[in-house]
Amino acid sequence: MEFYPYDIKNLKEILEKNKDFLESFFGENTFDEHFFNNIFKQSPKILTSSETINQETNARTIPMDMIQRKHEVILIFEIPGLNNAEDVDIKLLGSTLVITGEIRRNYMLSDKEIIKFERKVGRFSKKVALPFIVDNKRIHAKYYKGLLEVRVPIIKPNNYEKISVRFTDE
């Protein structure tokens, strides 16, 4: 069973499966019904305050850099572990660039062999609002050494004008 850190629904099952080990480390009755009642009460707060999980798709987010040049924006996403083009999907929805995909483990393990998992695998998702009018026909992407680079040509930058605020006594 894969485990995502914010997967509250499966947390109880995982903790119960490993109860003996966890109680030997944390003490008896640490993960009792009181613990789970508090977790389920807090889960909406945990999920909405977390920036590492996308609740709709059960996917984690990915780090990104955005660089603006005169005629293009370069977005660089850190996604180590992709194997081919089927592992990532890039879409432009209106003025929002959406990156989704999945990083898979390239090996199979039994539960007895697992000691620790730290590599980030599983579903990922990122939505980026583009503050420009872009040329969607010329957007292109390349993946190299764990970095996904998406180049987005700018047709016209949005003009931001300062709007003055008038203060009145009424």
Rank of each mutant, 00 (worst) to 15 (best):
Y107M: 09
M64L: 14
L109W: 01
Y6N: 08
I103E: 02
G81R: 04
P157T: 06
V134R: 04
V152E: 02
E86W: 03
D7A: 05
P80W: 05
P5F: 09
N29F: 05
G122R: 04
S110I: 02
T48L: 08
E78W: 06
V73F: 02
V152P: 02
K91M: 08
K112C: 02
F21S: 07
D87H: 09
P80V: 02
T52I: 15
E56H: 08
F31D: 00
P5E: 11
S125R: 11
M64R: 12
I8C: 05
L47N: 08
V73H: 01
K137N: 14
Y4T: 09
E2S: 08
K9D: 13
G146L: 05
A85T: 11
K156A: 09
F3N: 08
F21M: 09
N18A: 03
Y4W: 07
R69E: 15
N83H: 11
E72Y: 14
M1R: 09
T96Q: 12
K127G: 06
S49E: 13
Y6W: 09
V152N: 04
R166K: 15
I115N: 12
I115S: 15
E102H: 07
F124S: 03
Q55D: 13
E23K: 03
F117L: 12
I133W: 07
I103W: 00
V88R: 07
R138Q: 14
F35Y: 11
K91Q: 15
E170F: 11
N38T: 05
K162V: 14
H140F: 14
I74K: 09
K137C: 01
E72D: 15
Y6E: 10
V150K: 05
G101K: 02
N136W: 07
N37A: 14
E149A: 06
Y144P: 01
R123N: 14
Q55E: 14
R60V: 03
P157I: 01
N159T: 11
P131C: 02
N10E: 08
T61H: 08
Y144V: 10
Y144F: 09
I74D: 00
L11G: 00
G94T: 04
G81Q: 05
T57G: 05
E13L: 10
S50H: 06
I139T: 06
K137M: 11
S24M: 08
V121E: 12
L93I: 14
Y107G: 01
N106K: 08
I115F: 13
I79A: 02
D169F: 05
K45L: 13
I8M: 15
L93F: 10
L82I: 11
E51V: 10
T168D: 15
L82R: 04
K70I: 09
L130W: 03
L109D: 01
R105C: 00
T96C: 04
G101Q: 03
F3M: 09
D32K: 01
K137A: 14
H34T: 13
N84P: 02
F26V: 01
P153Q: 03
I154Y: 03
Q68N: 11
N136P: 05
E72I: 01
F132A: 04
T52R: 12
E149R: 13
V98L: 15
N38C: 10
A129Y: 08
N136L: 06
K112Q: 12
E13D: 13
